[in-house]
């Protein structure tokens, strides 16, 4: 038997909130390295740049809580954004009013993302295939489909120029609308996409803490056999978290199109699954499932963005960026994982 900490869940201890501490430390580090801070910079980090990884991370977090993993989130985002771009352009070329263009594009992203997520979920939940392999495979498929389509679809529709390996939203009022959503701020201070991220976070935090569905996810991650014996429909609940994550990837695709006005299918969302996992782990959620809070992911995402920003501010060669990022991640996770263990050894 292992010496698990069985301390009261309700009693307050800093250990439970170490993700906030890490986030604060990183923020201070950034401030020092960058030398200045402003409201604009603040919302830029915590809202504008955190939105997409945050949304993917929230989905990833739910999946990890049930004890699984999803390696296809970045590929779903890129694939959906690519085809959304094509649909957008076709509608613009057909002179559809811009409001309708945006509505259809947004709906496409949501429905398309949900569907791709459901495909993952059905294979993992219903057919009981291992999530790691299934989502690795669908990652390859989704990404290659969007790359291939880019190559064979005419440039006038993809919106790309020259050799044309990217998708671009065609200019016009519809594109401006998308751009405004992706880059403007509410009250001149709060980026819309950041607000959307926070709203989604609040909803998912509520679901995870206060609904029966949320508790079932923890039950499955904690002991799937026991959950099954207690009447929980493990197959369906597993399918559902992957589906929800697909939906969140679709929303991520909308954010991406708004921010960038286009997608390069060979780079968009690449490694985003890893960033999302990093955000989840920085948020104090155990990879083994059954433990952790969705609130942690919000801070985990902030921490992740801060690490990114710190590296930019340090102005080092882009080739060593990832080494530094990896090192900071390791340190943060060592604090997160080993901290509580050390405390336990020396008596609580």
């Amino acid at each position: 038997m292992s010496t698990t900490t069985l301390k009261k869940k309700n009693s307050f201890s800093i250990g439970q909130y170490s993700y906030i501490l890490i986030c604060l430390v990183l923020f201070a580090a950034y401030w020092i390295i960058n030398g200045r801070m402003s409201l604009k910079l603040f919302t830029n980090i915590f809202m504008y740049h955190s939105a997409i990884i945050g949304v993917l991370g929230l989905g990833m977090g739910m999946i990890i809580i049930t004890g699984d993993i999803d390696l296809s989130v970045g590929a779903i985002l890129s694939c959906i954004a690519s085809f959304a771009c094509v649909i957008f352009n076709l509608l613009v070329l057909a002179n559809v009013p811009s409001g309708l263009v945006i509505t259809i594009t947004v709906l496409f992203c949501i429905v398309g993302g949900t569907l791709l997520g459901f495909v993952n979920g059905a294979m993992i939940g219903k057919l009981k295939l291992p999530a790691f392999i299934v989502t690795l495979a669908t990652q390859l498929i989704y990404r290659s489909v969007s790359k291939y389509a880019c190559n064979i679809i005419d440039n006038s529709v993809t919106g790309g120029t020259g050799s044309g390996n990217v998708y671009k939203l065609l200019n016009g009022p519809a594109r401006d609308g998308m751009y405004a959503f992706g880059n403007r701020d509410l009250f001149g201070a709060l980026p819309y996409i950041g607000l959307l991220f926070l709203v989604i976070a609040v909803i998912l935090i509520y679901i995870s803490t206060s609904t029966k569905y949320g508790k079932r996810l923890y039950a499955i991650g904690s002991n799937a056999k026991a959950a099954h014996m207690a009447g929980v429909n493990v197959e369906w609940n597993r399918t559902s978290v992957f589906t929800i994550t697909g939906l969140l990837c679709g929303i991520g695709a909308i954010m991406w199109l708004g921010q960038q006005s286009g997608v390069d299918p060979s780079t968009a969302g690449v490694s985003n699954e890893m960033y999302a996992i990093a955000a989840v782990v920085l948020g104090g959620i155990a990879m083994s499932g059954g433990k952790g809070r969705m609130l942690g992911i919000v801070f985990g995402t902030f921490s992740y963005t801060l690490i990114d920003k710190i590296i930019n501010a340090m102005n080092v060669s882009s080739l060593v960026n990832d080494s530094i990022k990896g090192a900071i991640l390791l340190v943060a996770i060592v604090i997160q994982v080993l901290g509580p263990q050390l405390r336990k050894k020396h008596g609580e």
């Binding site: 206060s210 029966k212 569905y213 079932r216 923890y218 039950a219 002991n223 026991a226 207690a230 009447g231």
Partner: peptide, 27 residues
């Protein structure tokens, strides 16, 4: 077959009833 070790006593108790009363999703 019974214990969900990461869940509290309360959560371990109510989980089964909740799969029957799913129509009221909020705890």
């Amino acid at each position: 077959r019974s214990a969900m070790p990461d869940l509290s006593i309360l959560e371990n108790m109510y989980i089964s009833e909740h799969t029957l009363s799913g129509k009221k999703p909020i705890i």
